[in-house]
Computed example of a mutant assay.
Amino acid sequence: MGGASSHDIQDGILEPTDPLFKKKCRQLDARGAMYRINHLSWWKEELPSEDEYQTARVNLDRAGWEVDYIITHCCSTSVQDELSRGFCQADTLTDFLDEVTRRCKFKYHFFGHYHMDRIIQKKYVLLYEQIIRLKL
Results as ranks from 00 to 15, higher is better:
2 G>E: 12
2 G>D: 12
3 G>V: 01
4 A>E: 03
4 A>T: 05
5 S>V: 02
6 S>F: 13
8 D>V: 02
8 D>C: 00
8 D>I: 01
11 D>C: 00
12 G>C: 01
14 L>I: 00
14 L>T: 03
15 E>M: 08
16 P>E: 11
17 T>Y: 11
18 D>A: 09
19 P>C: 13
19 P>M: 11
19 P>H: 07
19 P>Q: 10
21 F>M: 08
22 K>W: 07
23 K>V: 13
23 K>I: 11
23 K>M: 13
24 K>M: 09
25 C>N: 07
26 R>M: 11
27 Q>E: 14
27 Q>S: 10
29 D>T: 08
30 A>T: 00
32 G>T: 07
33 A>F: 03
34 M>K: 13
36 R>S: 13
38 N>W: 15
39 H>V: 13
40 L>R: 14
41 S>F: 11
42 W>K: 11
42 W>S: 12
44 K>N: 14
44 K>Y: 15
45 E>P: 08
45 E>D: 14
46 E>R: 03
46 E>G: 10
46 E>Q: 13
47 L>A: 12
49 S>T: 14
49 S>W: 12
49 S>I: 09
52 E>P: 06
52 E>K: 00
53 Y>F: 15
55 T>M: 10
56 A>W: 04
57 R>L: 04
57 R>T: 01
57 R>K: 06
59 N>F: 04
59 N>T: 06
61 D>C: 01
61 D>Y: 00
62 R>Y: 01
64 G>Y: 01
64 G>K: 02
66 E>G: 07
67 V>T: 07
67 V>A: 10
67 V>E: 10
68 D>V: 08
69 Y>D: 09
70 I>D: 05
71 I>D: 04
73 H>T: 01
73 H>E: 05
74 C>M: 01
75 C>R: 00
76 S>L: 03
77 T>L: 00
77 T>N: 03
77 T>C: 02
78 S>A: 03
79 V>N: 00
79 V>C: 04
80 Q>N: 11
80 Q>E: 12
81 D>I: 05
82 E>A: 09
83 L>G: 09
85 R>N: 15
87 F>G: 02
87 F>A: 15
88 C>V: 13
90 A>W: 03
93 L>E: 01
94 T>L: 04
95 D>P: 05
96 F>D: 05
98 D>Q: 02
98 D>C: 01
99 E>I: 00
99 E>A: 04
100 V>P: 04
100 V>G: 01
100 V>L: 00
100 V>R: 05
101 T>K: 04
103 R>K: 15
104 C>G: 09
105 K>S: 13
105 K>H: 11
106 F>D: 08
107 K>I: 05
109 H>W: 09
111 F>S: 02
112 G>I: 08
112 G>C: 13
113 H>C: 09
114 Y>R: 08
114 Y>N: 08
115 H>Q: 11
116 M>H: 12
116 M>C: 12
117 D>L: 10
117 D>I: 02
118 R>E: 15
118 R>W: 12
118 R>P: 10
119 I>R: 14
121 Q>R: 13
122 K>Q: 14
122 K>G: 02
123 K>I: 00
123 K>S: 08
124 Y>D: 02
125 V>Q: 02
126 L>D: 07
127 L>V: 07
129 E>D: 10
130 Q>E: 09
130 Q>C: 05
132 I>T: 00
136 L>Q: 15
136 L>W: 12
136 L>C: 15
